[in-house]
Amino acid sequence: MDFLAFLGPYGPLILIVFVASMLIQGYLSRTYGKWSRIANPHQLTGAQVARLMLDENGLQHVPVNAVPGQLSDHYDPVRKTVNLSQGNYAVPSVSAMAVAAHEVGHAIQDKVRMPALVLRGRLAVPLSLGMNLAPFLLLAGVFLQLTGLIWVGVLLFGAALFFHLITLPVEFDASRRALAYLNERGLNGSSDTANGARTVLTAAALTYVAGFAMALAQLLNVLGIARSRSD
Score class of each variant (00 low, 15 high):
Leu23Pro: 06
His102Tyr: 03
Arg79Asp: 03
His61Lys: 14
Arg120Phe: 00
Gly158Phe: 12
Ile14Arg: 12
Asn188Phe: 00
Ala180Thr: 08
Pro68Asp: 06
Ser29Val: 10
Leu28Ser: 02
Arg79Ala: 09
Val49Cys: 09
Leu13Trp: 11
Met214Cys: 07
Asn221Cys: 08
Ala215Cys: 09
Gln48Lys: 09
Val170Trp: 00
Leu139Phe: 11
Ala180Asp: 10
Leu54Gln: 11
Arg122Ile: 11
Ile16Ser: 09
Pro126Lys: 06
Val200Asn: 04
Ile24Ala: 14
Ile150Asn: 10
Gly211Val: 06
Gly153Trp: 08
Phe163Val: 01
Thr199Trp: 02
Lys111His: 07
Glu103Val: 00
Ala197Asn: 11
Gln218Asp: 15
Arg51Lys: 15
Pro126Glu: 08
Ala194His: 02
Ala50Arg: 05
Thr193Ala: 09
Asn57Gln: 01
Ala194Ile: 00
Gln43Trp: 08
Asn188Lys: 01
Tyr75Leu: 03
Ala134Arg: 04
Asp173Arg: 00
Ala180His: 08
Gln86Cys: 05
Leu220Tyr: 05
Val209Cys: 11
Tyr89Val: 05
Gly211Ile: 03
Arg176Tyr: 12
Arg229Phe: 14
Gln48Leu: 04
Phe136Leu: 14
Asp73Ala: 10
Ser128Tyr: 07
Gly148Cys: 10
Gly158Tyr: 03
Asn221Ser: 08
Ala5Trp: 08
Asn195Leu: 13
Leu123Thr: 02
Asn83Gln: 10
Val82Asp: 12
Asn188Val: 01
Ala210Val: 07
Leu117Val: 03
Ala5Tyr: 08
Phe143Val: 15
Leu216His: 05
Asn83Phe: 01
Asp2Thr: 12
Arg177Gly: 01
Glu56Asp: 12
Asn195Met: 11
Ala47Ile: 00
Leu23Gly: 05
Asp192Gly: 04
Phe143Ser: 13
Asp73His: 09
Pro68Val: 04
Met214Ala: 15
Val104Leu: 05
Phe172His: 10
Leu182Gly: 07
Gln86Ala: 15
Gly158His: 06
Gln48Gly: 03
Asp2Tyr: 02
Asp2Met: 04
Ala100Ile: 02
Leu127Gln: 09
Leu13Gln: 10
Ala217Asn: 13
Leu15Phe: 04
Ala124Thr: 13
Leu4Glu: 11
Arg185Phe: 00
Leu216Cys: 07
Ala98Ser: 13
Gly105Ile: 00
Gly11Phe: 09
Ala39Gly: 03
Arg176Asp: 13
Ala213Ser: 15
Met1Ile: 12
Phe157Ile: 02
Val78Ile: 13
Pro12Leu: 09
Val82Arg: 09
Val209Ser: 12
Trp35Ile: 01
Gly105Arg: 02
Val125Tyr: 12
Val67Asn: 09
Thr167Arg: 04
Ile24Asn: 06
Leu138Asn: 03
Val78Ala: 14
Ser36Gly: 08
Ala124Met: 12
Phe136Pro: 07
Gly158Gln: 05
Val152Gln: 12
Gln43Ser: 11
Glu103Leu: 01
Pro41His: 00
Leu4Pro: 01
Leu117Gly: 02
Leu129His: 08
Tyr10Trp: 13
Leu216Tyr: 11
Ala159Leu: 15
Leu129Ala: 15
Ala98Gln: 10
Leu201Asn: 10
Pro115Trp: 04
Phe163Met: 14
Pro9Gly: 11
Leu7Gln: 04
Tyr89Ile: 06
Ala101Leu: 02
